[in-house]
Design a protein around this nucleic acid. Structure first.
Length: 322
DNA sequence: CTCCAGGGATGAT
DNA sequence: ATCATCCATGGA
């Protein structure tokens, strides 16, 4: 089993794959297996080197050609060209951000295929990471293409056309619940050509956001995820409950802040790589709370050093008014 | 404005 | 072993 080496500075592969951007990579031995587009890939990290291989090709010349392309594809997917030191240096200098920056060394924003990212985040609404992984796997197993890398089976993410042909019930059987209707409707818009995800790359941030939000099942949060993870809009700042909690506790303690004001703050304060800042704050908060052994509805993560019960938060909200 | 939809993991009891 | 809670969008 021959592995190709790729130099990868400032990358933490395991953290990157576990930071809530992608949901299909599976840990195998010292590395991970997953799909990058249509290609089944195994990847493991040794310090500043990635060792990779992809699935078999039918003939030897083809296999050689594919192997030559693989390093470029992997480097592009993991965004090894992002200037991570510069990006981190552009973050604001404050305690929460500094803690997150320190904690998340080597965390990169992956470049995901647009349809795969959009569809996956439509499925993510009102779900937690563990569950999104199950949905992604169910969709891939049922509608994707089976590939092998070594002894491991990997399924590619099904194209929009294939999900558009599925019935709502087919999708529900993948544990999508009420998201089945939205995913199917969006798949039809994309596969019919009425919505051309590739051509949207040319749009400004606000125009792109508007287009994405026009799709069934896509609101502001999911639109921002897709902008950040699939359109390289590194300013896009998705606000989920984790980030909302962090922003309020770290930047507006004991103050009521309206939702539009919080959004405005998130879009200006964190600068040109706000999406990266968001990812760092998000991942730090998630892991810190996971390790604290304290449920997050009874206290904030230990790393932030603030204790605040849900009851107290409610009290504060009731006390203050604009 | 509120309420609800679907559901597996997770943590509390 | 039960039980409550997590989650974001869209429609009633």
């Amino acid at each position: 089993m021959k592995l190709i080496k790729i130099r990868a500075l400032d990358l933490d592969l395991a953290m990157t794959l576990d930071s809530g951007q992608v949901f299909h990579w599976q840990k195998v031995g010292n590395g991970f297996v997953g799909a990058i587009g249509d290609r089944a890939v195994y990847v493991e990290q040794h310090a500043n080197v990635l060792k990779v291989r992809d699935g078999e090709a039918p003939s030897l010349p083809q296999a050689r050609a594919k192997a030559r392309a693989l390093p470029r594809i992997v480097a592009h997917y993991f965004a090894l060209d992002h200037p991570l030191a510069e990006i981190c240096a552009s973050f604001p200098n404050d305690p929460a951000m500094n803690a997150a920056r320190l904690f998340c060394c080597g965390l990169r924003i992956i470049r995901q295929p647009k349809w795969e990212c959009l569809a996956t985040f439509i499925c993510s609404s009102m779900k937690q990471v563990a569950h999104i992984r199950q949905i992604s796997l169910a969709l891939r197993r049922r509608f994707g293409d089976r590939r092998k890398v070594g002894d491991h089976v990997v399924y590619t993410f099904p194209p929009a056309q294939r999900l558009a042909r599925a019935t709502e019930n087919d999708l529900r059987e993948c544990a999508l619940g009420y998201r089945a209707k939205n995913l199917r409707a969006t798949a039809r818009l994309v596969s019919s050509g009425e919505c051309d995800l590739e051509s949207w790359s040319a749009l400004s941030d606000p125009d792109l956001r508007e287009k994405l939000c026009s799709l069934p099942g896509v609101g502001a949060k999911i639109a921002n995820c897709v902008m950040l993870f699939a359109y390289e809009r590194l300013r896009a700042f998705p606000i989920d409950v984790w980030i909302e909690r962090v922003l309020k506790q770290q930047y507006f303690p004991r103050k009521k802040i309206t939702e539009p004001r919080l959004r405005e703050f998130s879009e200006t304060y964190f600068g040109e790589h706000g999406g990266y800042a968001q990812q760092y704050l998000f991942h730090h908060a998630r892991i810190a709370s996971r390790n604290s052994g304290v449920s997050r509805d009874s206290s904030t993560p230990k790393a932030f050093g603030v204790r605040m019960t849900k009851g107290r938060i409610r009290d504060e909200r009731e006390q203050e008014h604009e």
